[in-house]
Nucleic acid binder design. Structure first.
Lengths: 328, 328
DNA sequence: AAAAAAATCTCAAACGTTTGCGAAAATGTT
DNA sequence: AACATTTTCGCAAACGTTTGAGATTTTTTT
C-alpha cells in the first residue's frame, strides 16, 4: 500500500533484511553481485527509505530547524534561501518555524525541534526573549545551536551576525566625509540590542564634529514616511538622511518622491540594506551592504563544523561593505 | 541521555508503558488519578514524545511539504508565511524545499516528501516541469497534493490559484476607462501558461478599441528598466504602462524616476501586485491585488479538507480586486 | 454473597531501520 | 586434504511509540 520496505525486497530476493540494508548503502561486507541485484529490484519497486524509521533508529533527522521571527522579510528570506540551498547539497532539509516575534511561540518552536530530533537549529531570537532554558534543553540533547542576526548578548553560544557597529560607522563616516551639515538618522526597534549598538556607534562618530544630528526610532514605513515629510518641510531641513533598514529607506524615499526632490542633489540618503531596494530607485541609493544571503552561508558553514567536530563555541562576524550609489 | 521516554516514566511509576501512553493522551480507559500522576512526572522529567517513533508507528508526520521555485520572492514568502501560520495552529510544521525553478531538483524534493511521509504537500511547479509521475507517486501514497499559483494545465489535481484572466482584464479595463490612447504592457516569463493566459485576456480587451497597444515580455527588473526608458524617450511615448509583476513595476518606476516624470500625470501606471511595492511610491500605484497571503490561507483550507475527508478534486480560484492609487 | 458489568490496566506485536556478532561459504595456505 | 583466512551473509535486538485484545480489579446488580 504505502511504500516498499527492506523486508519486501529481502523476501523477493530470498536474502535477509540486513543484507539488503547493507547492500543499499554499499557496505564492503556485501558482494557486488548481490549489490546489483538489490539495487535493481529496489529501483524497480521504487524503494524509498522511511525517514521516520531511520530517525528512530539513529535518533537523528536529516533536518535543520530554522527559527525566525517572520519570513516575510527580504533579509530573512534570503538567509533562509541560502541555508536551504546549502542544506540540500548535503542531503538535509529545513523546517521553518516562525515566531511572529513572540517569545512564547518561540519556545513552542524549540520544543518542536527537540521532538523532531532535528540535526541542528538556527535561531534568530524574538525581541523580548528573556529565558534561555529552552535553549539549554537543546544543548543538553547535543543538538548544535547557531544564533544568527539577532543574537542574545547574555547567553553563550555559537553566533553568526553582522558587524553591527561597522555598518553604522561606515555610514556615519560616509556622511561626514561628504561634508553634510545636518543629519537625520532613523533607527529601528529601540528595544533591540542591535539597534542600541548601532545608535551608539553612529553617534560616536559625530562627536566633536560641527554637524547637527537628530536620531529617531521607527518600526515601520508608515511611521517613517510622515516624519520624513515633516522634517523635509521645515526651514532647516536635513541635508542627509540615514536609514537603518530597507523598510525605513522605503518610508524616507516615499516622502522624497512626494516632495519631488532629487536624491543626491536636494537631499542625500544612505541606508543599511541587503541591496535590492537601493537599486530600485533612480538615482540609486548608496548603501552599506548587509547580506542575508552571505549570513546564511556563514551560518550554514558553522553548523557543519559543529556537526562534524563538536568543537568549541565561536562568534563569527560578517563584515559589511559600502556600495556606492548616487544618493550621497 | 537524550530524552525521557515512556518507558522511563512507566518504570518510575510502576505501571505499564501503554498506560502511560494512554494517560498522556487522555484516554477514557485510564483513571484520573493515574492520569495526574503521569502528567506530573512527565512534566517534571520534561518528557517529549519522539516524533520519529510516532511517525514510524502511525506512518505519518505532522509536517507539510512546501515545494516552491524560490522563497526570495515577496509573493511566495507571504504564501509560505500564511501556510506556516495556519499549520502551526493545528500542530503541523512545514518543510520548505526550493527547486530554484529546476525540474530535476523538484523531483528530488518530491522524493524527500515521500521519504518523510509528510501529511501533505503544497507545490508550485517549476516552469519546465513536464513529467508528472513523481506527482502520481505522491498520490499513490495517499498524500494530499495541492497545487498553487503555477499549476499544471494538463494534470488533474487540487489547484488553488489566482484568477489569471480577471486580474489582466481588470487592469485592461481600468486603462480603457481612463481614456488612455497608447499602452505599453510588460508581461513576465513568456513560457509560463499563466503569462500566456494573461496576455491573451489583456489583448482581447483592446480589440475594436482605438488604442495603441504594445506588449513586451521581460524576466527581470534589469530588462524592464532600459526598455521603459527608451519607450518613454520616444516621440510618441505611451501614456499608460501595465506591469504584470512587482519586479516589472520596479523596473518601470526606476525609469520613471530617472526621467523625473510624475506618475498619474506624465504617464499612468498600473500593476498586478500583492500590495507592498505599489505603496512605496508617491503617488501610490494603482494595482490589482493578488495576495500570496490569501492564496496561502485558501491552499491551507483546501489541504485540511483533503486530510479530513478525502473528498474529490477541486480547483479553487481566488478573485482579484482593484486597489486605487493615484497612478492612473 | 455471588454473578454481571464496568472500569482500569497490562501484554505483546507492530512500524522499518541499523548494527554488533556470529555463522556459513568461498578462498587461500600448508 | 586439513586447516586458517577472508568474504559474504543472517540473527536478533534495539530505537519509542501505538493499539487491539485480554487480564485484573473495582463497582454494580441480583
Amino acid at each position: 500500500m504505502t511504500g516498499t520496505t527492506l523486508k519486501e525486497i529481502s523476501k523477493a530476493l530470498g536474502i535477509s533484511i540486513s543484507t539488503v540494508s547493507r547492500a543499499l548503502k554499499n557496505h564492503p561486507d556485501i558482494s557486488s553481485r548481490t549489490k546489483t541485484k538489490v539495487a535493481e529490484l529496489a529501483n524497480l519497486l521504487d524503494y524509498e527509505p522511511n525517514a521516520n524509521a531511520i530517525g528512530l533508529r539513529t535518533n537523528t533527522n536529516k533536518v535543520f530547524g530554522l527559527l525566525i521571527p517572520s519570513i516575510s522579510n527580504s533579509f530573512y528570506d534570503s538567509f533562509v534561501a541560502a541555508v536551504e540551498e546549502e542544506s540540500r547539497k548535503v542531503g538535509y532539509s529545513i523546517m521553518i518555524l516562525q515566531s511572529g516575534d513572540n517569545a512564547e511561540i518561540e519556545v513552542e518552536n524549540l520544543k518542536l525541534c527537540r521532538q523532531n530530533r532535528v540535526s541542528g537549529v538556527f535561531v534568530c531570537i524574538a525581541s523580548q526573549t528573556q529565558h534561555y532554558e529552552p535553549f539549554n534543553k537543546i544543548k543538553e540533547q547535543k543538538i548544535p545551536l547557531i544564533f544568527f542576526d539577532k543574537v542574545p548578548d547574555s547567553y553563550e553560544g555559537n553566533k553568526v551576525c553582522l558587524a553591527d557597529k561597522t555598518s553604522a560607522v561606515l555610514s556615519a563616516n560616509t556622511i561626514i566625509q561628504s561634508g553634510k551639515k545636518s543629519v537625520l538618522a532613523f533607527f529601528g526597534n529601540e528595544k533591540l540590542s542591535i539597534t542600541a549598538k548601532r545608535v551608539e556607534a553612529f553617534k560616536d562618530c559625530f562627536k566633536n564634529k560641527k554637524i547637527k544630528l537628530e536620531t529617531q526610532f521607527c518600526n515601520s514605513m508608515n511611521e517613517v514616511y510622515p516624519q520624513t515629510l515633516s522634517a523635509l518641510n521645515k526651514n532647516q531641513k536635513p541635508d542627509a538622511i540615514f536609514c537603518m533598514s530597507d523598510e525605513i529607506l522605503c518610508g524616507v524615499m516615499k516622502a522624497v518622491l512626494q516632495l519631488k526632490l532629487t536624491v543626491g542633489k536636494d537631499v542625500s540618503v544612505i541606508a543599511i540594506s541587503d541591496g535590492f531596494f537601493p537599486k530600485i530607485y533612480a538615482p540609486e541609493i548608496t548603501y552599506v551592504e548587509t547580506s542575508g544571503y552571505k549570513l546564511g552561508k556563514a551560518a550554514f558553514t558553522r553548523m557543519m563544523e559543529c556537526i562534524n567536530d563538536n568543537s568549541e563555541i565561536k562568534e563569527i562576524i560578517i563584515d559589511s561593505v559600502l556600495i556606492q550609489g548616487a544618493s550621497i
